[in-house]
Amino acid sequence: MTKMQYCEGILAAFEYVMENDPRCLAIGQGLWSPWYVGRSMDGLDKKFGKNRVIDTPVSEQATTGIAIGAALNGYKPIVIHPRMDFMILATDQIVNQAAKWRHMLGGATSPAMVIRGIVNRGGEQGAQHSQALHSWYAHIPGLRVVMPATPADARDLLIAAVQSPDPVLYIDDRWLYELEDDVPPPCDVDLSSLGPQLLRDGSDLTIGAASYSTRLALDAAQALHTHGVSCAVVDARVLNPFDPGLLRQSVRRTGRLLAVDGGWETCGFAGEMIAAVVEGVEPRDLRTKPARITLPHAPAPTSKPLEAAYYPTVSDIVEMALSMVAEGK
Score class of each variant (00 low, 15 high):
Val251Glu: 01
Gly122Met: 11
Asp166Ser: 11
Ala321Gly: 04
Leu25Gln: 06
Glu307His: 10
Ile115Gly: 00
Trp136Asp: 09
Met41Gln: 11
Met147His: 04
Val260Gly: 06
Gln163Cys: 01
Ile68Asp: 07
Ala321Ile: 11
Ala67Trp: 02
Thr226His: 12
Ala132Asp: 15
Asp166Ile: 05
Cys231Ser: 06
Ala160Lys: 03
Gln249Lys: 13
Cys231Arg: 02
Asn20Met: 05
Arg121Leu: 14
Met41Leu: 15
Pro151Arg: 09
Lys100Pro: 04
Thr150Ile: 13
Leu199Ala: 02
Ala308Gln: 15
Leu247Glu: 06
Gly43Pro: 10
Ile80His: 11
Tyr75Lys: 15
Ser192Ile: 01
Asp45Ala: 15
Leu286Tyr: 09
Ala236Lys: 03
Pro77Lys: 05
Pro312Leu: 06
Ile274Gly: 02
Tyr137His: 11
His129Asp: 07
Phe14Thr: 01
Asp201Met: 00
Leu295Phe: 05
Val183Ile: 02
Ser192Phe: 04
Arg144Tyr: 10
Val233Gly: 09
Val58Phe: 15
Gly38Pro: 09
Leu216Asp: 00
Gly262Arg: 09
Ser164Tyr: 03
Tyr177Cys: 08
Ser315Cys: 02
Val119Tyr: 13
Ser135Phe: 15
Ala98Gly: 10
Pro196Asp: 10
Leu157Cys: 13
Pro299Tyr: 14
Val277Gly: 01
Arg215Gln: 12
Met1Pro: 11
Gly126Thr: 13
Asp172Thr: 14
Pro167Phe: 13
Arg174His: 04
Lys289Glu: 10
Trp264His: 15
Ile293Asn: 06
Val234Ser: 04
His103Ala: 11
Ile80Asn: 11
Lys3Asp: 14
Pro167Ser: 08
Gly280Leu: 10
Leu198Gln: 11
Gly43Thr: 09
Pro167Gly: 09
Glu8Met: 05
Val17Asp: 02
Gly280Phe: 07
Trp101Ser: 00
Asn96Ile: 08
Lys3Ile: 05
Ala112Lys: 01
Pro57Met: 14
Gly117Ala: 15
Asp45Leu: 04
Ile54Gly: 08
Thr109Arg: 08
Lys50Glu: 12
Glu19Pro: 00
Arg287Trp: 12
Gln249Val: 03
